[in-house]
């Protein structure tokens, strides 16, 4: 038997390799910034949200930046605070000041991490308690706690976390302020103030139970 190797073999092998390398579609190539974002709404299933009537929102944003934590109020932060107020009101809740015994407190936090990890509320609450003293809500000496909300999400960029706190039942909850709702926003360009309203809207759309009536 005579064996004759043809140059076509090598050519087509090279083509095969190139096709394997280049044939997979890059998912982000067709994504706009809004497409990259996810809006996760997590709730305490034991809570009846229509038992709360009033709310108050913190006057600034907690920035948690790779271990450094501070409060800040920028144009972006204010846009998110305004949007939260807008949609809480639309859902039947009444805005009151933080010293008027609101049923609900709302805090916003901007979390910036540079490594992949699981969203871990326990370490987050350490910062949270330090910078949002429960005395702000008129519950000095109380602590925060949370049910197990969090799954395994890959965090490799900035996130906006919004917590709704049960102030009304703090005493019956053992002198603790329970976090009864968390909204988490992740993706590209979340710190754009012009999209704050839409981003908060997505959280409320994912939380149809969040109504006072």
């Amino acid at each position: 038997m005579k064996f004759t190797f043809k140059p076509g073999w090598f050519l087509l092998s090279a083509i095969t390799f190139l096709l394997l390398q280049g044939c997979t579609k890059n998912i982000t190539s067709s994504y706009s910034y809004p497409d990259t974002r996810i809006y996760i709404a997590q709730r305490d299933s034991t809570v009846q949200y229509n038992t709360f009537k009033t709310f108050s929102v913190s006057d600034s944003i907690t920035i948690i930046d790779n271990g450094q934590t501070y409060k800040s109020l920028t144009t972006t932060g204010q846009a998110f605070i305004d949007a939260m107020i807008k949609y809480m009101k639309q859902n039947g809740y009444t805005l009151v000041s933080n010293n008027a015994n609101p049923d609900l407190g709302i805090n916003l936090s901007y979390i910036n991490t540079t490594s992949s990890s699981i969203v871990d509320m326990s370490s987050y609450l350490d910062y949270y308690s330090g910078y949002w003293d429960p005395s702000y809500w008129g519950y000095g000496g109380y602590g925060y706690y949370s049910p197990s909300y969090y799954g395994t999400y890959q965090i490799n960029q900035a996130s906006l976390s919004i917590n709704i706190l049960d102030l009304k039942d703090a005493v019956t909850n053992g002198n603790r302020i329970k976090i009864i709702w968390n909204g988490l926003i992740q993706g590209e360009g979340i710190d754009d103030p012009t999209t704050a309203d839409t981003q908060i809207l997505h959280l409320f759309q994912a939380s149809p139970y969040l109504k006072a009536n």
Partner: peptide, 18 residues
């Protein structure tokens, strides 16, 4: 790629996503 919609990912969690 499916348009943005709301998906239940746990009994107490919804996510709005593309």
């Amino acid at each position: 790629k499916f348009p943005r919609a709301i998906y239940g990912i746990a009994s107490n969690e919804n996510v709005s996503a593309v």
